[in-house]
Every structure is written in C-alpha cells, then in structure tokens.
Simulated scan of single mutants.
Amino acid sequence: MSVSSTRSSEDIDELEAVSWYHYDLSRHAAEALLLSNGVDGNFLLRNSNKGVDCFALSVRAKDSVKHFHVRRQFGRYSFGFNEFPSLQDFCSHLANQPLLGSETGNLIVLRFPYPRQVEEPSIYETVCVHTAMQTGRHENDLVPNAPALGTKEGYLVKQGAFVKNWKQRWFTLNRYELKYFKDKMFVEPIRTLDLTECSAVQFDYSQERVNCFCLVFPERTFYLCAKSGAEADEWIKILRWKLSQVKKGR
C-alpha cells in the first residue's frame, strides 16, 4: 500500500492543490527528473517512505540533487528549524526563495517549483538510476565512490576515424563507459570510451549533418549525430553530468 493511499481525502485534496507535489515519486526518480530536465534551483515535494506524515523536498543544486525532510504533525508542517501552521504557509515560505544549508555547507536557493503537469522528456523514461549500498538502508550507508549513475542507450550515427563516412552504431552508456556496437544484437562492442578521459561534450556545427555533437578525448574527437535535436540534447545533458561527476572525483 502506498503512503498516499493511507491519507484522508481531505489531505490528498490539499496536497493536489500544490502543483509541484509529485505524489509517490521515488528519491532516485526525482534525481533523474531534476538532473535531466531541471535547472539549478528547481524543487519539488514528494512522499517520503518514513511515514504517512513525512515528505521530502528535493532540490536541484547545480549538478546534484539535495533532499530535505518535511514533517506534518497535528496539521502543522515542520521544515528545518521552522514550523508552519498550514500547508499554504509552508508553500508561501518556499515561494519567497529561501536559502537552505546543505551538509556540505553550501547554500541552496529555491528558485523554481517543478510542476508535475509537464510533458516529461524521453530521457526521464530511459534513464535508469542505480545506487550501490553497503549494509542497511540508510543514505549514510551509500558507497562513497558509487553514487547514483544514469544509463542510456540508443542508435547514433558516428563518423569514421580515417575514412570520414558515417555509419549507424548502437551506443550504451553505463557508469563512465560509453560503448558502441555494430548493431543492437551484438554482444561485443567495437570500442569502449572511458569518460574519465573525456574533456568536453558539446554540440558541433562543423559537419554537414544536423543534430551533431562531439566528445573530445586527448587522442581523438568523436563526432556523433542523433536523429533529432532533442535526442542530441539528451545525450549531451547526461554525458555532461557524467563529466561533472568525474571532476568531483566520484
């Protein structure tokens, strides 16, 4: 039984009036959504698995997502050191772009509520988020060098290294490895690119083809084309996020 199903209809109606309340969206799904389609300062409210009167405020802070506990008790909402007499007062407080302090000591500004009634990008449907854990289920038990990592796969057209022709290849992205295969049915990749050695991912307008982007490595720049500008943008977003994690030493 989901947490939301145990709430009264009055409570559910009150929460549904909050356009950025995302019901039972999981922690990892919230991370995938905000990282793939959000901007710095986007935030949303979701149910927490800690109990019927527990919520989580998920906030995108640059290239990561922070989560904050929100509790409701006797109709009042507690958030950090603050307590609000109603959900409306709590929402009004967040609308004033408050500053939040994270565990790292950085200040996070709540700028833009992320509404649930939006057309989700295809990357949200295809990104799979995994978290390696040691023992227990507490977030402090997460393995430090194995954070939530997105995966993606699909066909791209790649330019050859020596003969500058273009061929369709099947690409898979997992952790910091971008592999490409002759086709989807093949088991062995033609090549595996180590993203820890990649210095940049960006749109490329030097080719005669459209929807192109490139990955810059020390020994070579790889030119790839997607079937649409939106698809190219999806690849660039998740690849750049990977590079940002590399820079953080993860």
Rank of each mutant, 00 (worst) to 15 (best):
R209V: 07
T221N: 15
L193A: 02
L178D: 07
G229T: 15
E188K: 14
K184D: 14
V201Y: 01
D194K: 10
D204S: 12
V210D: 14
E177M: 06
D233V: 01
Q207A: 13
Y223L: 09
P218H: 02
T196I: 02
E208Y: 00
A232G: 04
P189E: 14
E177Y: 09
E188C: 03
T221Q: 15
C212M: 04
F222S: 08
V216C: 05
R209L: 07
F217M: 06
N211E: 11
R209T: 00
T221L: 01
L193N: 01
E177R: 14
M185C: 03
K227M: 03
V216S: 05
T196A: 05
T196C: 13
E231N: 11
S199Y: 05
E208C: 02
V210L: 06
E188M: 11
L195N: 09
K179Y: 00
P218W: 05
Y180E: 12
I190P: 03
K227I: 12
A226G: 15
L195A: 05
S206C: 01
D183T: 11
V210S: 11
I190W: 00
E208M: 07
R209Q: 04
P189F: 06
D204Q: 03
Y176M: 13
P189C: 06
K227Q: 11
F203Q: 12
E231C: 03
V210I: 10
D204W: 10
K179D: 04
V201G: 02
V210W: 02
S206G: 10
E208K: 08
L178E: 02
